[in-house]
Amino acid sequence: MPRSTTRRSSPCTHGPSCPACGTATRTSKAAVRAPSTTSGWCKNIIKVCASGGVLSVIDDPLHQEFTVRELRTIVEVAGLAERSVAAHCHGKPGIMTALEAGVLTIEHGSYLDDEACTAMREAGAILVPTLTIIRELLDGGGLPPYAARKLADIARVHRDNIARAHQAGVRIAMGTDIQSSGDAPAAWGRHGREVVLLNDIGMNPLDVIEAATANDPATLGRQAPRSGLLHEGFDADILVVDGDPLSDISLLADPSKITAVWQAGTLVKGRRGCVTPAPVAVCAPLSHPESVRRPTYSLHYR
């Protein structure tokens, strides 16, 4: 493909108008200026596509999208504004290049192997697996043939490689890639499924809760300096759960078991003084979409 200042890629998983994924820059200068055109996105994080995607028409998840020089420039300039860089990445070449460039998070990580896991751990990078989107798209079906083929290829390795990363000690934060509403696959209201899927790959319930609470604000880097703890003066949203998620993590995927929700200190579900007297876990709303960074999470017991 001839090099140009920018090129318009095919629709990403977030839709054809997605400013975060819809334009892939092809020079370092253009790359670092792209966030200024995203109309309110990227306020807390800069996201790049370091590999091809699944629903995109013309690229391949295994293919690397940027050179290390381009990515390093993006990371450098983002750092001037105290922003970290998240890299959408399936294939190993893109993963290794993104890590060399200094990105903070790898989103998806479908083709992680032992070498890539070691590189992530040594770099202190965070993995956001997005297991939910893979399962939702597989269960829903109806994808065009080019996307169905790529999804099937990824589905064969993604789950095992996320388990590999966990076993290798890679830090995991929870995200789902949920991006729609209504009854369609991958719609809001189904994102609690991620806690069960993380548990299924070998993470114990406390690890899963930590991934969704203490680890998620860390994906924001310096944009979330007072987060990750339930502590006076920190930002935190809180869930009250009817039951013990350490015994049954699926409670966090069942809205009927969420008896109260505080968002930024304001009660948005439940009534004051009506919390069940039985022991309950208190933690933050779980699993924001991979493409929209998470606010603040914490864990506490009553």
Rank of each mutant, 00 (worst) to 15 (best):
C12H: 01
G15Q: 11
P16Y: 00
C18V: 02
R33L: 15
C42I: 03
K43T: 15
I45S: 03
I46T: 05
S51T: 15
G53K: 14
V54G: 08
P61S: 13
P61N: 14
Q64E: 14
R69S: 11
E70Y: 05
R72A: 15
V75K: 02
V77T: 13
A78T: 13
A78S: 14
L80A: 04
H90S: 03
I95K: 03
M96H: 01
L99N: 01
E100T: 06
G102P: 02
E115A: 11
R121E: 08
G124V: 12
L127I: 06
L127M: 07
L138Q: 09
G141W: 11
L143R: 08
P144S: 15
Y146E: 11
K150L: 12
A152Q: 15
D160H: 07
H166T: 02
Q167W: 05
Q167V: 13
G169P: 01
A173S: 10
I178R: 00
Q179E: 10
S180I: 08
S180H: 14
A184E: 11
W188V: 13
R190V: 11
R190G: 07
G192N: 07
G192C: 07
G192D: 04
E210I: 03
E210N: 06
E210C: 04
A212N: 02
T213W: 05
N215G: 02
P217G: 08
G221A: 08
A224W: 04
A224N: 09
P225E: 03
L229F: 11
H231L: 12
G233F: 02
I238W: 00
V241P: 06
D242M: 01
D244M: 05
I249Q: 01
L251F: 13
D254N: 15
S256Q: 11
K257W: 12
V261Q: 00
V275M: 02
T276M: 09
P277S: 14
P279M: 00
V280M: 01
H288S: 10
R293G: 08
P295E: 10
T296L: 01
H300R: 13
Y301Q: 11
